[in-house]
Design a binder for these strands. Structure first.
Lengths: 217, 217
DNA sequence: CAATAATGGAGAGTGCTACTCTCCAAAGTC
DNA sequence: GACTTTGGAGAGTAGCACTCTCCATTATTG
């Protein structure tokens, strides 16, 4: 198959495929001449993977490149695998917004960061990841953002989110195949692509739940 | 407070605040002269809301504007409220990728869309939203993307995601305050800002879950 | 075997988003 | 009364994801 065939099979314009080749998102085909190369099913799969990660999971091409690197050269230890998966997670939607100076000038200056400690407590209660894991800092940022927006997240509400996360994670882990390469793919790609699914299901469930609670205003 | 005070209190540059004013993301201050206006706490709150929605929830300014419109002019019926919330959800991460012609040319042309029916089945089983709800189409797109990327999502895995969604939705609905304006804010903004929290918790829970399953390769 | 089409490769240009910068005259501050 | 700040508007910038244009080969077709 030549590049036009790859374009046909994937629905991606030739110009875009050339761009992916240049950007290293797609491995080169087997050259048959100076200006000719053939592509196979591995190319079709890779293009479809790139499109799924950008269109469905909303990743930037830079992050997609990192994901592909991990898939092509799977980490040896389980720990490294999860680390890689989470590194990608952290890269989602831009890096952390470098601490903007919360100039104290208000009536009360917070002694210690209350969101950081709340995040740490939650993690400790569930015996989840390490206290110094970057995910904890991220969670603290997200809680701080919610508070800044005037949303107060009750302990019960947060606990429900944690409970749901446990349910999902158990199923995630159960779905991981035995062989290493497949495992990496399943964890990294599977998680990234089911993130939006989870959010969509949440919206659907909200409709049902709110219909059951006909409030009397 | 003048614009520089607003900038100080929110940590957002004056230039950006002026931009928000021009774009209609921030209501004008009360003018005290031709080239002077004062801002109050409602402005501080609004700026913090805009930043939370863009930085934490990852919304574009266009979508943020829609959210603000809903908050400023709350829909009267509960149904409209959820509709508005979901409209925003659908606008997340760009509109649906207009159906790219999946040129049939392969050996087998699929009779009916298997992902659409799977999505419909799931919704029907849980008695969630209507079958023709745009969310169902979105879910189908997401399932299709996962499949195209070589991820096969088992019924058990999908069921776990649905179960988690139910858990979260129940807590979401329970957290809604009685008065209308607060309810809209809680549902729309609260959901948008806890979406990333849920995904972060999922990653944390995955670490814990995988640590418990030391597999023998 | 000559006319036409497709290919790989690389540079430049496009459209969109979210700012960021520069000006300006009027208003406030020291 | 010099200096700074403000509101307002236009223009410029940076990053992202393409998309377009060229061009010297190859490949295909009549």
């Amino acid at each position: 198959m030549r590049i036009s065939g790859l374009a046909e099979r994937t629905g991606v314009p030739v110009a875009t495929l050339k761009f992916y080749l240049r950007e290293g998102l797609l491995h080169a085909g087997t050259a048959t001449a100076r200006t000719q190369a053939v592509y196979d099913t591995t190319h079709v799969e890779r293009v479809r993977l790139v499109r799924a990660l950008t269109e469905s999971a909303g990743l930037t091409l830079g992050v997609v490149r990192e994901v592909l690197t991990v898939l092509d050269d799977p980490p040896t230890s389980r720990h490294e695998l999860l680390g890689a998966a989470q590194h990608v997670m952290l890269a989602r939607e831009g890096a952390r917004p470098q601490e903007h100076a919360e100039l104290s000038g208000g009536p009360s200056a917070p002694a210690a960061d209350p969101w950081a400690s709340r995040a740490a407590e939650l993690v400790a209660a569930r015996d989840w990841c390490a206290e110094d894991d970057p995910l904890v800092a991220r969670l603290a940022d997200q809680l701080r953002a919610a508070d800044a927006a005037g949303i107060d997240l009750t302990d019960a509400h947060l606990a429900a989110l944690a409970e749901a996360a446990d349910t999902v994670a158990a199923a995630d882990v159960a779905s991981v195949p035995a062989e290493r390469a497949g495992a990496v793919r399943q964890v990294v790609v599977g998680t990234l692509l089911t993130d939006p699914v989870l959010l969509t299901l949440r919206r659907m469930a909200q409709q049902r739940a709110s219909a059951g609670v006909e409030r009397t205003d």
